[in-house]
Nucleic acid binder design. Sequence first.
DNA 1: CATGCTATGTGCATCCTGTCAATAGAAAAA
DNA 2: TTTTTCTATTGACAGGATGCACATAGCATG
Lengths: 134, 134
Amino acid sequence: MDMTGGSGRRRRWRRRGCSRRAVRLLNPTLLLLLHHGPAHGYTLIDQLEHYGLDDVNTSVVYRALRDMEERGWVSSRWDEERTKGPPRRVYQLTALGDEVLSWWTRDLKETREMIDHILETHARHMDEGEGVHH
Amino acid sequence: MDMTGGSGRRRRWRRRGCSRRAVRLLNPTLLLLLHHGPAHGYTLIDQLEHYGLDDVNTSVVYRALRDMEERGWVSSRWDEERTKGPPRRVYQLTALGDEVLSWWTRDLKETREMIDHILETHARHMDEGEGVHH
DNA sequence: CATGCTATGTGCATCCTGTCAATAGAAAAA
DNA sequence: TTTTTCTATTGACAGGATGCACATAGCATG
């Protein structure tokens, strides 16, 4: 059963990829990781695991990084020192990206409060109702 | 400045409508509201305000309700007793919808934990760094 | 009957996401 | 040496999700 509840009339209820929730958290998490210092895309993808975002497709991550670069949140350059494999791109947080990260943390706090409100209301309602509803 | 960080190459960074986050919380909130008892769409839209979802487009709400009906989470009938205005549809939670609500609460708890993890990491990093980063 | 209010629904353009496949360099295996 | 494998990054495309503008429709009021 697909619980994600998107809209769309097309009756294709297969769940694709990871939770939509995860994607919402991708951008702030990437900014946070980059706040620790410059990093390669692949490194970032590895580190996403620590935030429960390990099921995000690599294409999605690279796209997010390029989008953030277009917006000026991060800058990138090709890594000079090639250790092994193809050239790697190094991403770095910009001053703007730093501001955006602050904005994102405020946004995440708001989101958490909204979720808390929903969960609290649900818990309270469950206590009151005790199986009596509708 | 648009901070929402969507993907898309089309360089149209104007934000339309409400926060995407809000839409993401729409389905569980609707189910929660319906858990209190049957209600009309319009009533639900009014009540969304209490959950910070007042800026969600009405089309989106009605569409969400119909989608949930297609999925069997809610059932609906036309209201017999017409007070004023056009016929209104009354939505009611189904047994399946009740299960789905439980699923959603678990999902929201997970999401909250992920957000907490991000925020905690950020706060800790900010404390350590104190202006020294990159 | 023209206007306005309440309530719901539709069409369409646009935006957002995931999948799949392609490219590409270096190292290990054959 | 040729093939395979691993590391990294990117592009194309289909299809899902959203918002806006607008349509419908019943009742009320003037």
